[in-house]
Each structure stands twice: as C-alpha cells, then as structure tokens.
Design a protein around this nucleic acid. Structure first.
Lengths: 242, 242
DNA sequence: AAGTGGTCTAGACCACCAG
DNA sequence: TGGTGGTCTAGACCACTTT
C-alpha cells in the first residue's frame, strides 16, 4: 500500500535528500522552477511551492533573476529542543563522528549529588565524548547518568548511537534545564577541541528529568568560533517574556 | 511612496490584525477560502496561500471539510527566563542603574537591513546602554530599533524606563529569536564593562517581531564572570517544549 | 534577448464533513 | 448535497539579472 505523496512534497524530498546527503553542497545552485517543470512533468506553480517552502524553512535562498541556491546551515543548536548533535550535523549534509574519551562508574561528589537531587552521594556513570563535524571537533560532552534509571547505559556501543540518542529513545524526558556560560577552556579541553589560545567556549549545562527524577547531568562545551545556540518561538498575546 | 503589497500579504495582514486585536478570539472561525475570494475579489489560490501560510506560522488551524480556526497561542514562553534586566536585578534586591553611552539615527548596513528583513537599507535608531548592578557593569546593550514601528523611541527618557521595558509596553511582541555565542570583547567593550584581560563574554543576540515585522535587533554582552543565562521548562516525550 | 523568481488567475478534481 | 480544505494545471504579466 504505497502512500502517494503530493507532488510538491516529492519535489521537496528530492531536493532535501540531495542537500542532506551532501550531493548538493552549500552555495551550489539547485534546479530552477522551469527545470523542475521539465524533469518532474509538473506545473510551474507546483515547482514554485516546493522551492518556496524549502526557502521559508531556511534550506534554500532564492535570488530573483538569478536562481535558487543551497543555503549554508549555521552551526548552531537549539536551546528549546533536546536535539541529538549527530542528527543535527547530518541534516546539514556533514559527517558526524565521535571519540570516546573516557567511561567509568564514579562516586558522585556532593555537588553532583545535589544536581541529581540525591540526599547522599551515590555512584553514577560518567562519560566523556568528543563530537566532530567533518573531522573538526565541535562539542566536548561530559555526562553523568543516573544509574537507577538507565541501568544499562554503560554497556551501550556509542559509536552506533550517541548517548543523547540512547537516552532519548530509552527514557521519556519531562523537563529540561539549561544554563549557558562563556568560559575559557582549560588546557585539556583546549587540546581536545583543537583550539587556538585565548579563544573562548560556550558551556551549556543541562539537566533532564523523567517522572520527577534527574536522569542525566551534562556539560557540553562548544568552541565559540564553531557553534552558536539558538531559539525562536512565538509568545502569548501579552508578549510577556524578556 | 506607498508600497503595494502582494494580495496574499494583504489578506494575511487583514486576518492577523483581527487575531491580534482580539476581534477574532481563539477557536473562532475565520472566513473560508471562498468567502475570501468573494470579499477580496481574488482567486482561490491566493486566498489559499494566505490561509496556508498563517497555518504554517501557527496562527490558524485548518480542518478539511470543516473550516479554518484561530489557534490557541501556547503560553510556554512564561517558562523562558530571559527577563528585563532591570526587573531581574531589582528582584534580587540589588540596585539597577544605567548609563546612556550613545544614541543616534544611523543608516543600516546591508547586514542589519537583512536582519530587519528590509529589501534595502533604511535609517534605524541605534542606542548603546550600559547596565550596572550595584554599580558594577553587567550588561552592555547595543540596540537597533525599527523607526517605522516605534517612531517616538528616540525621545524617551531611558533613565526612567529601560529600552526593553519601553518597547514591551509600546509594541506587542509576538515572536522572539535568540542566539547565544561566546566572544572575546573588543577593547572598547572590555573597558566599558570594566573587565580583566582574557576574560570572555556571553553575547546574546535578540530579534523581536510584531505582526510579522522586526521591531528591534539587539546585542547584549555579559561578562562571563558575572552572568549566566538560565532556562527551565517542561517538554513532551520527544524533548520538545510544550 | 533569454532566463530567473514573484505573483496571480480561472478553472479543475478529490476526500472529507455536515445537515 | 453543498461547503470545506488540499492539490494541481496551463496559462499569464511583471521586475529583475545575465549574456
């Protein structure tokens, strides 16, 4: 039972596929409306809708009189959503790889126990992973995991599935807390991230809850020159936040 | 001088105006495509585009065979803690003061015009303000304001009311975009913020929209040692905000 | 002059929902 | 059965850029 997609959707998928597979790199020209009319045997309005929507979604940039081009995807991550960095990188048509730096069962410090909302220190899983985009380090992840909730976390193969992806697929997240700072990396961090001297980092500290319990505490460090954090959202009628 | 807007835009503005003025409450039915065809004297495709785009933007919900309805706006943003800095400082029981560094009407660069979503560069109001907490600089605000929307922005006395507070009270904000980076301050910024050498800053870039138009573009710079951004909110199972 | 995107029209067929 | 939205067509005119 093949579900027939609308024509403009098929065209969108076709183009998005080329972008996300990397066949069409950022800056390259995509087929014009007339070319799509020819190759797909569709009307110009349908081709126009596909290109216009991809443009509204930020994948393409259209220049009247010139053509339509693949947009450079900003290296940035959402502050609102909990997204897997591997997917994020791959959706830009880039390659994600990771290096497992360390993995251990450790005794929580009092500060960490506080973050887990434990009365007394317990053992926790600790993991340090370096994420690379096209071979360039973009995130250093230091993560503690609550062993009472994700007991089989340590026996995962994180080259197949990132820690974030595993946790997202295993434990439903109810609540998120983010805290963002600018920091200067220490010597180890600077070396792992392959950074120049005197270059700052963004440090994103995240806690996530499931059914009232802290699942995981993570500190994600991004080289300032390679990543930005981003959020965009609609407000209520009063325009309340700020 | 009068810029002729595309027909589908006029229809969008017409509907958005009714929604944001409250004439059409959440849940109420908006005119059908055929009714818009009649009342505006346009083709159905044009009416369809207006309704479809407002639906994609989250203002309307369309139900095949039934009609198109004004959507309930989620009040999720009350959980995003990015508040007016004056209130925030005072809520800590500290004293907020500010210094007006500069105030001018300037010609927008092409990059700024892009941020305002203007086709061509126009004049914009520019303001630089230093915020202090108990006499210590904590935020350097560089703000550009759309003069077509907040025409009397420049004659305000910002020692009584911060620029953010004035804009919030004057223009209803319906959309916000934030982008956070870590930067090294330049010499001027470092001096104004009274910072030591080699200390990084958080740079928060903010755009706000009202009725589809960019009201203001601001860059807020915080010394890393004195500020962190914080947010906490509930999510659905996929890690997306409610 | 030829090609591009931006818009608009006046039809059309369909699946769906209501009375 | 008539109204709704969802899609699609085959034209059209325009402003613009490139050659």
């Amino acid at each position: 039972m093949n579900q027939m997609l609308p024509l403009y959707m098929q065209v969108k998928d076709h183009i998005l596929g080329h972008i996300q597979s990397g066949t069409w790199a950022a800056g390259s020209r995509v087929p014009s409306e007339n070319e799509l009319v020819e190759s797909f045997g569709i009307s110009r309005m349908t081709a126009n809708r596909a290109l216009r929507e991809l443009s509204a979604d930020g994948y393409l940039a259209r220049v009247p009189g010139v053509g339509t081009f693949v947009k450079e995807q900003a290296a940035r991550t959402s502050l609102m959503e909990l997204r897997n960095i591997a997917e994020e990188i791959e959706s830009r048509g880039h390659t994600h790889t990771l290096q497992l730096i360390s993995r251990a069962k450790v005794m929580a410090s009092q500060a960490l126990a506080d973050e887990f909302e434990w009365k007394a220190p317990q053992h926790a899983f600790h993991l340090v992973v370096l994420h690379l985009e096209n071979g360039l380090p973009v995130q250093l992840e230091s993560r503690w995991v609550n062993p009472f909730i994700a007991a089989d976390f340590m026996i995962q193969n994180f080259t197949k599935q990132t820690p974030t992806a595993y946790l997202l697929n295993t434990v439903p997240v109810d609540e998120l807390e983010h805290s963002v700072e600018a920091i200067m990396p220490d010597a180890d961090q600077q070396k792992l991230l392959n950074m120049r001297d005197r270059e700052p980092c963004l440090s994103l500290h995240r806690r996530s809850w499931s059914q009232g319990k802290v699942v995981t505490v993570a500190t994600l460090i991004y080289p300032a020159s390679r990543y930005a954090l981003h959020s965009r959202y609609k407000t209520n009628a009063q325009g309340k936040p700020l």
